[in-house]
Each structure stands twice: as C-alpha cells, then as structure tokens.
Write a protein that binds this DNA or RNA. Sequence first.
RNA 1: GGCCCGUUGGUGAAGUGGUUGAACACACAUGCCUUUCACGCAUGCAUUCAUGGGUUCAAAUCCCGUACGGGUCACCA
Length: 546
Amino acid sequence: MDNQKLATLLFPHLKHTRSYYEEMYPKRELDEKAMVTRFAPSPTGFIHMGSLYASFVSYVYAHQSKGIFYLRIEDTDQKREVENGIENIISDLKKEDILFDEGPTIGGKYGPYIQSERKEIYEAFVYDLILKGYAYPAFESKKELEQLRKLQEKEKKRIGYYGKYAKGRDLSLEDIQKHLENKDSYVIRLKANGNFEDKFEFKDCIKGKILLPSNDMDIVLLKQDGLPTYHFAHVVDDYLMRTTHVVRGDEWLSSVPVHLQLFRLLGVKPPKYAHIAPLTKKIGEHVRKLSKRYDKECSMSFYQEEGIPTNAIKIYLATLLNTSFEDYYLSNQPASILDFNFTWKKMSVGGSLFDLTKLLFLSRTYMSRLTAEALYQEILPFYREKDPSFYQTITADAIDTIRILNVERTGKKPRKDFATYQDIKKHTWYMYDTYYFEDKQMPRALIKEEYDLSLVTCYFKEIYDVQDTKEVWYEKLKEYIEKYQYARTVKEYLHNPGKYKGHVGDFCEMIRVFLFCSLETPDIYELLQILTKARILKRLDIYKKI
RNA sequence: GGCCCGUUGGUGAAGUGGUUGAACACACAUGCCUUUCACGCAUGCAUUCAUGGGUUCAAAUCCCGUACGGGUCACCA
C-alpha cells in the first residue's frame, strides 16, 4: 500500500502538516516542576460537584507549582450539544472562583481551546499517522458493526474491531478509491500494533502501579463527520497544549493503553496521568457515584440556593483531596488552600463518600473566622438575588448590620451558628424593626402565661443602662430579680426550688421572647446594646396593647 | 462474560513487617461550663483492619484463593 497516495486521496486539501503545528505550539517555558493541567468538560450542561472536584484538583496543582491551568471545551459530539453549554461552564467556574489562565473567551497562545475549532489540526495528525501506516479508513456501517458484535458474542470472543475482525485493514488502494467515488461514508481507524496478551506496567500518580494489557483495538480516530473521538483529541490536544498532568475520572483508566499507544506512534512523550476516584453516595447499603440527576447536593445550584459559601466547598474538597489538609485548616488561623502542600499519593484510591454534614461543619468554621465586614460583603450578592427585601433591610444600615454580625465574633471562641448565608436571616431577623414589628412569617417563640411583662418592662425602665459594662449589667440584673423572688443563679434555684418563682435563666428567657421572639439567641447584653433603650421600650410597648 | 481497580469504625481517613493501647477530624452518646442556643472542654464509641489460607519470631501492612463493591468493553465524553 502506498501510504502517501492514500493520505493525499483522503486529505487532498490538507492545509498544514503536523510539523507546522508543532512549531506553532512550542514547549512551554516554565519551571521544571511547574505543572500544566487542564479542565476539559463537554458543554452538555452545568458544572456539578464531580466536575468541580476534578477542576479544583487541576487548578490547585497547577497553581501550587506555578504552572498553567487551562480550560478546553470538548465539543466533538454534536448530538449532545446543549444551548449555551460553553457559557454555562465558564460562568459556573467563575461563580466557584476557579480561574483558568487560558481558555475560550480569554484566549492564550495554545488555542483554539474549543475542539470543534481544531479540526484541521486533527487532520494534520491523522495524515501523519496514515503516512506512517498507523491509520486507515474503514467503511463499515453501523449495522455491520452490530453484526460483528453479535458474532463475537456468539463466539465468546472479546468484542471490538481488532485483529482478524478489522476487515478495513485488508482494503486495497483501489477498494478505497471505489468507496470514495461512491461517496460511501467512512471513519479513520488506528492500526493498533499491540497484543492483548502482553501486559505492561503503567504508573498512575494516584493509583500507583497498574498492570494493563497492551492495546489491539483499531479504535476510531476520526468519526464520519470528520471530528475526532475523545481518544484522538485528547492525545493531539494534550500534546500540542503541552499538558504535563492529565487529571480525569478513573473511568478513563481502561483507555490508558489506547492513549499511550497513540502517543508512542506519534513519537511523543505522554503526559503523567492522575485518575481520580468518583465522589460517591450511600443509599441504604448501596454505594454509587454521586449523580447529577438524583442527588440534590451534586448540582451547584443547590449550594447557590442554600447560600453555602464557595470557599467552604473548596475547603471541603481540599480535605477530600488530602485529609491532612483538614488538620492544617482547623489548627491554623489564617489557612489558605494554596499554602498547603498537596500530594498525589495522599489522594484516595477508592471513591470518597460525599458528606454534606461535614461540609456544613467546615462551612460553619469558615464563616466563624471571617470578620463581620468580610461576612457582610459575602452575603450581599446572595441576598440581593435571593431575598431582595432582606437585602434592603441589611443594606439600609450597613453599620448596624455589621454590628449584628459581630456579636460574639471577636472573642477566642467565636460563635458558629452560621453554616449558610440563609442562616444569617434565620438568626438575626429579629434585630431589624421591619421584621420584628411586621413580618408574621418569621418563626416566633410563644409567650408563656407565666411570663411577667411588667417585671421586664420595669427592669428596662428603671434599672437597665446602656452605658453599663457587661459585668455591671449582669450584676444589676441579678440584684433586681432577686428582689422579686428570682434566684441569682440556676444552681441556687435547683438547691431550693420552693423558695423561688424562678431563676436568672427564666428572666433572660422572658427578655429573649419579648424582645427577640426567640428562645435561642446569642448573648443578650450585646443584643441589647445594639438595640438601645428607646427601641427596647418601643418593642415592649406592643405587648401592653394586646 | 473478559479485563482493570478497590475493601481499616456510621463517615472522611492515618498507618505499608515490630513503642498501634489502630492517630486525627466529622457524626453520635454522656457529662462539665453557661442567661438560652451555638461554641469550648472532658469522656465513651473498631479487642481489630471484607473473608479463608499461607510466609514470618512478628502482618492492617507481603503472597494466593473467595466474597462484595466500583469501572470499562461506542463513529459518548
């Protein structure tokens, strides 16, 4: 077979040869240790937890090594294409604050970063393979392939296009010419040179040494529509874009023999591979991959709706990446993800169960460590979008809101009652007069019959002084209630219940319920300080009228 | 069915032949602190590392079999 003739027959209008592109995309000038990684999704919808995890891993390693992280869109399957697919991915990544250095829209020296725009590049490489006798056209129809599969099933042979079943290998140049004249549709296949019985050792960054069979499948390189398959696009793109580390789901592990063979036939050094285990979920006794369709915690919109901070998600993902990160994060006060040294070897080999509870715990810690100002800035976009009326309330007096957010935040043991942005409204609404006086939707604690309104009112009118320090305030409060048969401490009361009407706790409860509509609030002293005496009395006033 | 990978508590896991009484964190339980709640603190929670066998003075750690779980076998990625 005259390979040159075959190649020109198939690609009479080839624009450039392979070497043209190799010169155009030279080796990157980076540190030896710098990693070039990528996130390569198909534009088939929104980003979910699984793909975020994969992109996060790539992003972290590239940035830690002062390398490059880029985005490449794998849109070679036109059937699966979704409207605005690319825009959705880019805007999701932006929302999650995973910034890429090169990619569609922002460009870069190694573009185009959308596979459908790289058609002629793939053609140049296929042309090269044909010249070397490593690829050939095959004209089987879907039906014929289906029949082949049935035959192999019957014969109990491995299924696929290989060895003696690869009939396209035997076609003569004349046969091919005839097919082309008939305008028969065809694909370009790899002429595999491996033997399935031969095993070779492959070293994965995460999984370690793995024994794999060498590839003998004549897989499709270029589909009928002229676009490449994943396998071929991966090899060409990651070579030309000079990727050093391919991070992808471990469902690709079994395709590694194909990919390594392609790199070898092209005479090119393959990248390192890191196959990550999927995030899983336990349903009863069954464990399965976290699914976009069935699990709410898989789609990013769930986190956006709940107001779970992006940073909290990342901290959680980082603990899945290397568990030791968790120790580092919890025991260091400013703790930045990029400052931690992640290693491949510490990544889990099997699938990790996705634990929303733990994520929320980390979120609580994260939010407790923010300054009130920073927290305020973080919640603004959330409420502007999800709850405009609360947004208006908190922005009407920003200083007041920041004071509210600052309650019990500055001490050694800051409060940890916010796990989501939504929790903020849940725990602070009663501090705003608009909600206190009007909003009947908010859950209000019941006023019990034994509550003594006049005792509380009298206390605020005559005893309470905003100027008091916390110690003085508390001392005065206890002195006051003692006069009305309330015990100074709970212990005292428990020692001698018959002697008292109640104890400090009971009195504080009345204040809570009357003034804050709730049985659970942070330190009353701080809340009262923010409220001021005038507003306190105004609030108590409404109960008299009832 | 062939091939590949995995299996340490409810969860994430540390640990690759001998100070491991199997770390640490989440969850759970109890108690302390406390004006409630959220924290914080203390204690408890795997006599044992899926299972059977082997190697060894010694195994969660090495070898073989079994079971279970996951992945893959497309002109999808």
